[in-house]
Amino acid sequence: MKRSVGDKIIDAIIVFFMVLVIIAMLYPMWNTLAVSFNDARDSIKGGIYLWPRKWSLYNYQSVFKTEKVFNAFLISVARTVISTILNVFFSGLLAYVLSHKDFVLRRFTTVFMIMTMYINAGLIPQYFLYRNLGINNTFWVYILPGMVGAFNVIVIRTYINSLPASLSESAKIDGATEMKIYFNIIFPLCLPVLATVALWVAVGAWNDWFTSYIFAPKQSLSTLQYEMMKIISSSMQQGAAQTPDYLQQSQSQQSSMVTPNSLRAAMTIVATVPILIVYPFLQKYFVTVNIGSVKE
């Protein structure tokens, strides 16, 4: 089709608008990146927008040298990896079980599971449950409550139902157990949808600070996001009475080298980059799944 001059003008306007959107989406992170690589004393003067004026890796060094932050980083990684593996495995297994149309407990289990998406006892009963289970202030509070997700199970089950049933049936005739079929046939075939669910779970686990705040406030169990939360809410409060002690320390000991603002910028990058790196690897899968769920 020939494009008229009017069409080309509209194209140009659209492209211009999209460039504005890109700038608006990228600028806040880009600016933080520039500040994090800029010398802290120099940043105080202001005017750092797109590029560091005086390069320095000192902000990152002091982030990782602070034992609390490094420990929080390890806890964040551990809980994210473990939750993701467990949730994907257990949600997938239940999805496979529920994909058997003639399974006697199918209806009951499905309703019992879907109900959990609507009912929610609320924060305080939840707090009591965890206390009675003895998982408050332990690493388990990050893992146990999120081992299966009802929504994830439904998404995976829909995908399994779209696979040809003959695959698992022939394996069953050959005498394979259900677990074997799940591991050797269903699991590999479901990789696209499992990758999608893995991304959902990983993003949720990595970005969660509320669990630490309410259920595991112990310093040794703190996560990166929770440390970020402490820093940001203390910088929001003018008095800065609750400045985490390592910031005060760094202020007094090396006052000339690091400022809370620069440290915060470096920590923002450290708390963001790992989850952003995961995303491109999984991207090709989940666009197809999203389209699939629309047509469903």
Binding site: G122, P125, V148, M179
Partner: peptide, 26 residues
């Protein structure tokens, strides 16, 4: 369907503990 039932039971217990039991707290 013994195997399927055996796999399902732990899930029912899990959902019961983490999603239904706290309702008692209401």
């Amino acid at each position: 369907q013994k195997e399927l039932v055996l796999i399902t039971i732990p899930y029912i217990i899990y959902f019961f503990i983490f999603n239904y039991l706290p309702l008692w707290g209401l």
